[in-house]
Design a protein around this nucleic acid. Structure first.
Lengths: 217, 217
DNA sequence: TAGTTCACTACACGAACGTGTAGCCTGAAG
DNA sequence: CTTCAGGCTACACGTTCGTGTAGTGAACTA
């Protein structure tokens, strides 16, 4: 029953503070955010933040756990299904409301949550690669891991750089309503780049990059 | 002669402060960095920072201008040559020493330099696309711009997320010595994703994403 | 040599911020 | 009705950080 009360409490002060912190942390970074700013955004006193979370660092940890909980559940579910690569992005954005922007910030500040997010994305990418072409991307191989890592970074780039993407696109790329437009652009990028790399001018780059360990003619 | 003296001064206190600031800003963010920390790293007093740059914000602007100057020169040069997409990354990393990590941080904090960097990357990508396939990517079209924006973000993701990439790869991805490994992984990503998207499972995603405006059968 | 400029330092002020403390108010338990 | 727990606030303390001020010493000029 204690657990029930805690989850119900999620609609009161504690949750309001967490949501406000998610927002302010995302906008100004952890260092740039002050507890008084968060308190004002939540409509509470700074003392209440201390009462619930102990310290600013405690509040940050709570935000980490909440964001990671919201988002990684989605990611792990995707890991267990036969979901496609671009689908990861889609479900990710849909899952998390205010925590998306928080994680975007966390990705470049030093946060355990961000590392876990990145690692999960890379794991998902590695699984995708080995399923896609087990011969070329054997599980555990360095090349497979490298490719999975960069693939994860590329997927996450729309999150980490959403400010710039939004500025150029004129819409908020984190809004689920615009996810299709983003996915379409990503598909185009892969298509165009592949065309370039398998063509005249780009072929040398492709050969040089993948040559040393490429086994197929 | 005043100009000569200024450029020569670049090897003395002013430059030492700037270099230290580049480093500390990159490590801890602008808010997380203190002028006393930067002063200590540069081996000077905090007063000297004020003397040369007026304020912490002035120092940050100077870092912006220096980093952007170092890096955008390279990018613009690439824009004027018939350089390939992955080559942009290569020359970018080689060009800038300590400013690379600074720009990585700046990409997610609000900095004019970062916006300029991103826009340049996107402009380079747009040029690449229209050259690559003028019919599919006409200059100025929304699709072209969207694709260019996402392409720029993908290229820059290795910069913005270098911490995570480095953690998984075991090496510093910003070290020019390891750029080939990064480029190889990027080539693989494009190759694998294209294979997926033009194949059975991925084909529906590709068709759905690019269908509405795609003209070719 | 006297004067001026300028890189540079030492010291201190004032504000902001994280944190600590004391206490109020409500609601449930006895 | 009393008691106690806990959500919640008001207020104050100590520190840190950006900034301001005064001053020193070396190099250059006349």
């Amino acid at each position: 029953m204690d657990i029930d009360r805690l989850t119900n409490e999620d609609l009161t002060g504690r949750a309001r503070i967490r949501d406000a912190a998610l927002k302010v942390f995302a906008e100004r970074g952890v260092k740039g955010a002050t507890v008084q700013l968060i308190a004002a955004a939540a409509g509470v006193s700074t003392g209440l933040i201390r009462h619930h979370f102990g310290s600013k660092e405690g509040l940050r940890r709570a935000c980490d756990e909440y964001a990671i909980g919201t988002l990684l559940d989605q990611a792990r579910r995707a890991l267990e299904k036969d979901t496609a690569a671009p689908g990861f992005l889609d479900s990710m954005y849909r899952a998390s409301g205010s925590s998306t922007r928080y994680l975007a910030r966390a990705l470049v500040e030093d946060s355990p949550a961000a590392s876990e997010l990145f690692d999960t994305g890379a794991a998902l990418a590695e699984r995708f690669l080995t399923e896609q072409d087990p011969h070329r991307y054997p599980a555990g191989a360095t090349t497979t891991q490298d490719t999975a890592t960069v693939m994860g970074a590329m997927q996450l780039s729309t999150l980490a750089l959403h400010t710039h993407i939004g500025r150029r696109m004129g819409v908020d790329p984190l809004d689920p309503a615009h996810t299709p437009r983003l996915v379409a652009a990503m598909v185009e990028v892969h298509s165009a780049t592949h065309a370039f790399l398998s063509q005249g001018r780009g072929r040398p780059i492709s050969d040089e990059a993948t040559g040393p360990w490429q086994e197929e003619p």
